[in-house]
Nucleic acid binder design. Structure first.
Lengths: 205, 205, 205, 205
DNA sequence: GATGAATGAGATTTCATTCAT
DNA sequence: TATGAATGAAATCTCATTCAT
């Protein structure tokens, strides 16, 4: 019970922080705003988090854990390199589309801030990227993906593309292109781009 | 003479700000640090810039102007969609490699901050991205690039990939992959990914 | 208890501000001085007041409320136009004499500042002046005061006279004339000056 | 020629300062504003005045010299205590009416500031007030004014009344009462108020 | 004399964090 | 645990004044 109450408050703070950070940016957000929105006292926040930075990091890690688990589960249900990759793209963009505020914080704030947060390793983010490289490696084993594609580079290329599309979508007022259309194009370009030309011929023949 | 001195000071401040912002991030940078590094009095900065935000924006616009001009000139000397695109990628990554501090500020700080700078339109950034879409459109006219590739989406996909690779390179201590290698892979994936399959077959045949 | 502490601090700040403003003038007074004298932290002041201007206005309104109530009560106990007016004069000068610092602030600082305090209506001051006009109107009803005396003008004439005498007394080092003597002369001049000549004749006859 | 130019600049600065001080108050006025309005460089002001305070004091003394001379001359042409006094009131209010900006500065700024200007004696102001006491003393010699009226007090009473009326007129948007009407009432009250009652009877008889 | 760019001291205000209750 | 009043360090920006030209 105590514990439940505890978690409840922690979660309320994280949720409020997500909203506030998304709206004002990390540096322009005030602890008191978060406290107010979470319906706790300012001081209470310091019972759950070491300091302001810690809220951002915790928020990120909490959400990343959920996301990584979720994405991994879904991808496990797909078979074949291409299907898995398209599923990853779909899931990523869905997450952005469904939780815009979280997306903003993760995209904008964390990128800016993590350089300055001592002791933060960014492992979770690495874990997320490695979902992509694992798929690519599998593709190479399947003989689908060219051997000269370095998975450690390719994972960043795909993530960067997704991230930029997401940023634009999050920040722009008039959403010119849907996330779905963008996702399709990303998938087309990336998959065609990494495919083994031999297989390509075969599949085209 | 007066004018030269004037420009000199303005430039010194921009240069110092680049260094300081890169090192500490915009919000953790102090005007006094910049002034000290630029060897001017704190107050002098306000003769050249409206406020702290204005330094960041000016820095960005100044550099963007130079970069855009430079990149456009170089691309103009190349012929054909593929050459132009590879040149763009090469130039972008060279800029990152040659001026790491500037790159850090442009990549990290501006992305975070521009949301909060009222009245800043970000035209320069748009201009830069449009160099890419112009090349893609040319590729479509040449019959090289598939018609279902939306240039407005593709430009962000390529930029996102370059940007992420650059961010990683800028932030990581041990630079595992060279920018050159990464650039080659980006080019390979992106170009193969957008090529018209018919041409592809022909070129493969 | 909480509340008492609260009021205590607010009052301590007001009191300290009165002293500091009186000594240095509003613009030459520093928040830190006031805080130090009030034995609170600089930031604490901003829990009770919006800004520096607000301290001055609050100080004025707080004191005016007390003064107006006090003066009105005392005047209510007097009967007849002349007695009431002499009592007003006596009370006004007593207030100056008893609380020189408050007087200085109210006389000098507020007069200078209120032009620049947007949104400050100065109602309290008006209320105070209207105590005088009320007495004059009563005098006119009693047939004592000439009908051609415009109460709205006369109230300022009397207040101006009192104010100048007070300013002089507050600012001059060697107080040549006592407030009492000055008060008597003001009363003599003003009352004789507004009396109905007919009554005057009668009373002289 | 040099000298004429010199005076011209000095005067332009004084004139500009009057305008700027009147509009913004002394402490909210910037040297650069005054310089701009006077069409001189900021630094030029320091060739004519020691510092910002000195501008205010000089402005005051310059104008006071003119005013005192002017008022004295006009009064000298009147005969008898009552005429002289009414002329003084008329002149004072005319000055306010004719040069509102100067009036504002003299009334509001100087009053506030002179406490804080080291070494400023305020002699000119004293000279001005003594015009009044001289008239009153003459009135006492003529047997018109009661002996128990202390001229040093009475001069402040009259000045205070005039000053308050003027302040109100200068600051209020809708000028409810004309300066002329107010002047008549001040004269009526003050003169009747100081007159010897014996003379009063005689003059009434 | 005249200029105006440069100076740099200094004050208000904010806000993360603490701690007595 | 929870509170929220109090703290006080710290930073942006202003502007009177100076001084090299």
């Amino acid at each position: 019970m105590q514990n439940k109450e505890h978690n409840d408050k922690r979660e309320r703070i994280i949720k409020a922080a997500t909203q506030v950070f998304a709206q004002n940016g990390f540096y322009n957000s005030k602890i008191s705003q978060i406290a107010k929105l979470a319906k706790v006292a300012d001081g209470t926040i310091y019972l759950y988090f070491k300091n302001k930075d810690d809220i951002l990091i915790s928020l990120f890690e909490d959400e990343m854990n959920k996301i990584i688990k979720n994405v991994r589960d879904e991808i496990a249900q797909e078979s074949g390199f291409e299907n898995k990759l398209r599923k990853f793209i779909e899931k990523h963009l869905n997450l952005i589309g469904e939780n815009r505020q979280l997306a903003e914080v993760m995209q904008i704030e964390l990128r800016q801030s993590h350089k300055f947060m001592k002791g933060y390793s960014g492992t979770k983010f690495s874990d997320y990227l490695n979902i992509i490289s694992t798929i690519i490696i599998q593709g190479q084993k399947e003989g689908k993906v060219r051997q000269d594609i370095v998975p450690g580079v390719a994972k960043r290329i795909l993530f960067g593309a997704l991230d930029e599309i997401s940023s634009y979508w999050v920040l722009s007022k008039n959403k010119k292109y849907s996330l779905q259309l963008s996702g399709k194009i990303i998938g087309d370009i990336f998959i065609d781009g990494v495919l083994n030309p031999d297989k390509n011929l075969v599949s085209a023949g």
